[in-house]
């Protein structure tokens, strides 16, 4: 745009309008279900704390993943492996979190492992999976889509191979606590806060946006792009590992089929929340709202007794609509510029 006759513009809070839009969508979705609730079910949708609690609990795991995936998308990449990493970490973590109550009948000396062991194993596994993703992308230059697709298949395979398809159950009480009550929600919100700060106020965040906006310029500006990408994917893996721990602890069991399609829900949450698939743009706050919108829809459809098939169809449409909206916004901007 030609820059002439600039009228002094009031200093505006950065990025707020866009986030307000997302918030409005959240409110609108809630209101639609409220109205439909009174029409078809004769009761309020929102005035039911139990329903809302369950809804937030349900999306917390996807939310944790989505925070990692948001960062990956901001760098201009994608992570398809997170759902499978959830399953893999859930299985392996559960195997070291099992309580020995039954085995002790045979081996009285057997003690349970302290809860830090499954925690460390789960987080470590996720971290390693993420680092492999990052290293493949940064060092070999293969597209993130392919690298993480490979990890998606491999991690799911490991989850199945680990017990030859058998579920693992009976964790120690101290492990089960992680998934009990409102803990998953607290973990989700804590992670969101940490990475909100990390992305907006630290060097890590500034470099992440810079790489997504223009990797060549980032390199010339002295950023070690390869190392930073490995970091970002490793963090995404770490959060998928955390999600795996929470999932297993909440269900008090682990199965190889856990976390199926979570990667797509996480990407959807990020995109609905305004993260641009072309990189360089996105906020954790938006992703949190995006996660809540997804949760609200799932809960709302269930409340209205809509079939699960329809839910998926609608979800697909909404994801595409979010990307279309983002593309329109960008086109409008480049036309103006």
């Amino acid at each position: 745009m030609d820059n002439v006759q600039i009228e002094p513009v009031k200093r505006q809070r950065r990025g707020l309008p866009q986030e307000l839009n997302i918030l409005l969508v959240l409110v609108a979705v809630a209101l639609v279900f409220e109205i439909l609730g009174w029409i078809f079910q004769g009761q309020s949708f929102l005035m039911n704390t139990r329903r809302l609690t369950i809804m937030i609990l349900q999306v917390s795991v996807v939310g944790i993943i989505a925070i990692g995936v948001t960062q990956v998308i901001i760098t201009g990449g994608i992570d398809l492996s997170s759902g499978s990493v959830v399953a893999m970490t859930a299985m392996i973590t559960m195997s070291v979190a099992q309580s020995g109550d039954y085995a002790r009948a045979m081996y009285p000396a057997l003690t349970d492992l302290p809860v830090v062991v499954p925690l460390a194993v789960g987080l470590g596994l996720g971290l390693i999976a993420g680092m492999i993703n990052g290293a493949l992308i940064a060092l070999t230059g293969i597209p993130p889509f392919i690298a993480t697709l490979g990890m998606m298949v491999t991690a799911r395979g490991i989850a199945k191979w680990y017990t030859k398809g058998q579920p693992i159950s009976f964790p120690t009480d101290s492990f089960a606590v992680i998934g009990s009550g409102a803990w998953p929600v607290f973990i989700f919100l804590a992670v969101a806060l940490i990475f909100h700060i990390a992305l907006r106020y630290t060097r890590y965040g500034k470099f992440t946006y810079a790489i997504g906006a223009n990797p060549q310029a980032a390199r010339v500006s002295g950023i070690n792009v390869q190392r930073h990408l490995i970091k970002v994917y490793a963090i995404a893996g770490l959060l998928a590992g955390l999600a795996g721990i929470v999932t297993a602890a909440r269900a008090e069991t682990a199965q190889a089929g856990m976390g199926m399609m979570y990667e797509l829900d996480a990407i959807a949450a990020a995109v609905i929340g305004g993260t641009s698939l072309s990189g360089g743009r996105g906020r954790i706050f938006g992703t949190v709202i995006g996660t809540l919108i997804l949760g609200l829809m799932m809960s709302g459809f269930t409340f209205l007794r809509v079939d699960a098939f329809y839910q998926e169809i609608v979800k697909g449409v909404i994801i595409v609509a979010a990307v279309v909206a983002d593309t329109f916004r960008q086109n409008a901007r480049s036309k103006k510029a």
Binding site: Y209, A210, A213, N214, Q216, A218, V220, S221, G280, R281
Partner: peptide, 15 residues
């Protein structure tokens, strides 16, 4: 190799 086009002037300048 210069500008981060989607980012602000501040973000471009400080990097």
């Amino acid at each position: 190799t210069g500008c981060f086009l989607p980012l602000t002037i501040l973000e471009n300048m400080q990097i």
